[in-house]
């Protein structure tokens, strides 16, 4: 709980550490990606988008998994903290899904010759993005905040269960059509340096996500404090 901005609570200390860690990590990632890893021969320089692309989608899926778990917990035992947790992770998940979609489109242009191919993974990711954007919008439509939180949790559960079904259905739908030429980068024949960089990027992005989530949750906590202060007006 933040009583005053001057209090140097351990929480602020952890936040600062995470923030600085994420920033340094991101700069380190740039060095690894642009200097350390070799140039991929077939795709050229643009293949280097792969590292942030994979780290973003990993974060997005991890975020939505956390939203799913928190939503179930909320429905079993409603609490403001659980809702804040779910909401913050959903927002960060949407941010990273956005990065995934945009980086994927930019990568796709020189490789596939088009920004967007209706391939199974792209389509699923776009639908995922749409579902969680609606999740985030939902409470603002409700007059009763408690109902808004509860309904968001319902969508948090359905949205996540829906993802694999959507993916399967889109995949099978696309089996009728020519597959886009996707360079199989995730094969085991990836050079070790590329693998290290991928793992490093995933770790750094996760730290970044945790930092952003804590910031996001802090806003809601401060808002709750504000509401409490106002309701006990003298």
């Amino acid at each position: 709980m933040l009583r005053s901005k001057h209090a140097s609570s351990p929480r602020r200390w952890v936040d600062d550490l995470l923030g600085v860690g994420a920033l340094v990590g991101m700069v380190g990632a740039l060095w690894l990606i642009f200097v350390y890893t070799p140039l991929e021969l077939v795709q050229g320089a643009v293949q280097k988008v792969f590292y942030i692309h994979l780290a973003s989608i990993w974060n997005a899926y991890a975020s939505f998994l956390l939203v799913f778990v928190a939503s179930i917990l909320y429905l079993r035992r409603p609490s403001a903290a659980t809702d804040r947790f779910a909401r913050a992770w959903a927002e960060i998940g949407v941010v990273f899904t956005t990065i995934t979609l945009i980086s994927g489109a930019i990568w796709g242009k020189p490789i596939w010759g088009t920004y967007w191919s209706w391939d199974a993974r792209l389509t699923t990711t776009l639908l995922l993005w749409l579902i969680y954007v609606v999740y985030l919008m939902l409470p603002s439509f409700m007059d009763d905040p408690e109902r808004g939180r509860r309904y968001a949790a319902v969508v948090g559960v359905i949205g996540f269960v829906d993802v694999p079904i959507v993916h399967m259905s889109v995949r099978w739908w696309r089996t009728l059509h020519p597959d886009p030429i996707v360079a199989n980068l995730e094969g085991p024949d990836l050079p070790a340096s590329m693998w290290y960089t991928v793992l490093y990027c995933i770790v750094v992005f996760t730290v970044l996500a945790v930092y952003l989530v804590r910031q996001r949750m802090q806003i809601d906590e401060l808002r709750a404090t504000l509401a409490r202060l106002r309701s006990t007006a003298v």
Partner: peptide
Amino acid sequence: TLQNLDYLFAAYAILWVIIFGYFFYLTRQI
């Protein structure tokens, strides 16, 4: 192999813009 540098640049520029944009949005709200 260096022909697609502009795409690479665009991808990283957008990554940093989104992350910093979101970060500043959060900081301002806090």
